[in-house]
Structure formats: structure tokens, C-alpha cells
Design a binder for these strands. Structure first.
Lengths: 133, 133
DNA sequence: GTAAAGTGTATGTGATTGTCATACAATCGT
DNA sequence: ACGATTGTATGACAATCACATACACTTTAC
């Protein structure tokens, strides 16, 4: 498994999912958990790219994606800053359910009992909302 | 939103996710819920492809993917049959957690309260394990 | 104030991937 | 056996991803 890591972020270059997507996902998690709070500056694209060993444009793409979700504010010449802890673009309930259903289906098919799945979910949720203000 | 539909399966051609992946996902869900039970034959690739308006190879790719997960058995000349209700390849706990965390993160960032998320999860889980034997 | 350093952005290239059209091969029914 | 029905393999084309490089905006130092 080809993985790149900075301590805060881990990406798997052999995964089907694009690097810039994995990066956005990792940053999203950090923002959700409050490890990157509103107003905090994200590392410059070159620095993060260098740390991970990927191209700076790949990082830039992740930043633009997060910006389009309303989570960060990117400004040419200055940098990127966490701007919010909630996404702006609101999605329909069905759009939220579909990925959830997909993940739960996988867990069910893997043979995990319902109770164990619920335990996993609760644990992850607790972790995610730990740093809530 | 460009969507193709057969009543049982719905795919979104404008989505980032490949069609064959969406197809596999939909079929996985049908198997998990027990709407496609062990021994039942899947539609021929040409039929499903025709119904959806996609290429037969796209459907064939989905079938091969499901076969590699141990859910169905595909045989040249005969067809594809549901072979199991649990995936064979077992994944580490971390491999199962990662997609779950990603989905939950999205839900949290969308502003949904923890209680509401748990309700969603329970509801989907109940639906998924409804047709359990 | 202006230059240099530091920041994100735009452009173009090669490799990979997704979807398709078409031809091939295995199995089943009669 | 033969034809019909099924999955499979091959090759073409477009879209996407990650990269190298050059560009443009902001801040800092002096």
C-alpha cells in the first residue's frame, strides 16, 4: 500500500480515489473535529505538497474543492483560511442518504452484526463531535 | 441530473462515480436487503444494459466486480447468479472505518445534529436488515 | 515605493481510466 | 449439430488525474 503521510494527513496513492479528493476528505475531517478552527490558516500549497510528495496543483485542487463547499476561503497571494465549520451548499435528504446507505450496505455485507455497526457509528460520531464548541 | 433507471436500479450519468461502480452498489444493496436471494439469476448483461441505456461491457464490469467480492458467480455462456449474502474478502477494521468516517463527517459538516444522524443510520440499518433470513 | 519572497492560478503534457462499438468464445435449447 | 443466448476480449476515443512549468496577486523588507 503506497501511502503518503504528514502526521495530520494520510493519502493512499494506490487507491482508486483521486489524491485531491482524499486530501479534501482529510482536511474536512480536521475541520469537523475542530483541529482546524475558524480563522486558522491552512499550510501553503507548496508546503503541503512538499510534505506529501505530490504536486502543488493537486493540493490547490483540494483547496478549491473545499472552498466550493464553503469550508475555507482561498485568496490569491495570501493563502487559505478556514472560514466555516458547516458546508453551505445544502443537499437534499436523499443526497445525504445515498452515500450513507452505500457504506452501511458494505458493513452489513461484511457480516458485521447490526449492534456492532451501531457501536462503530456511535464511536466515530463521538470522535467527530468531540471538539465542538 | 441525468439519471437512468429500471425501477430496481438508478444510476446518475453526471455523477463523478463510474457507472459500473454505481451499478455494483445498487446490486449490492439489493442482495443485502434480500431482494435478490442466493441462487437467483441476475439479468443478462445485454438486457440490463439495454434497460439502462448503457454499454453491455459496463454491466459486465459491474458483474465481475461483484464476483470478485464473492457476492455473485458469473459463468461464461450461462449467466450470473447470486452466490452469497456476505462478502468473502475481509477487510481490516480500519478499512471499514475510513469510508464510514468520511460519510459521517459530511453529515456532521452539513449541520445535522448528532441525534438526527443516529436516527438516519438506524432507519437505514433497519431497512437493510429487513429481509434477513 | 519598490523589490524580493511568498502565496494561489493558469496552461499544457503524458498516463490512466471509463465508456463504447465490435468481434470472439462458451453454454444452452431444440 | 445448429442456432440462440450468454459472458469475454480487443481496440478506439474522450475525460480525468497528476505533473512540470510559467504566470499573477500579496505581503514583507528595506
Amino acid at each position: 500500500m503506497h501511502t503518503l503521510d504528514t502526521g495530520f494527513l494520510t493519502i493512499d496513492t494506490s487507491a482508486r480515489k483521486p489524491i485531491y479528493e482524499q486530501l479534501a476528505e482529510g482536511l474536512r475531517a480536521l475541520i469537523a473535529r475542530g483541529e482546524l478552527r475558524e480563522g486558522v490558516a491552512l499550510p501553503p500549497v507548496r508546503q503541503l505538497a512538499g510534505d506529501l510528495g505530490v504536486n502543488l496543483n493537486t493540493v490547490a485542487m483540494a483547496y478549491r474543492l473545499l472552498q466550493s463547499e464553503g469550508l475555507i476561503s482561498v485568496k490569491h497571494g495570501s493563502g487559505a483560511v478556514v472560514s466555516s465549520r458547516t458546508t453551505t451548499a445544502e443537499q437534499s435528504e436523499e443526497e445525504m442518504r445515498k452515500p450513507l446507505r452505500s457504506v452501511l450496505t458494505q458493513l452489513v455485507l461484511s457480516g458485521l452484526p447490526k449492534s456492532e455497526i451501531l457501536r462503530l457509528v456511535s464511536e466515530e460520531l463521538r470522535f467527530l463531535t468531540k471538539g465542538a464548541k
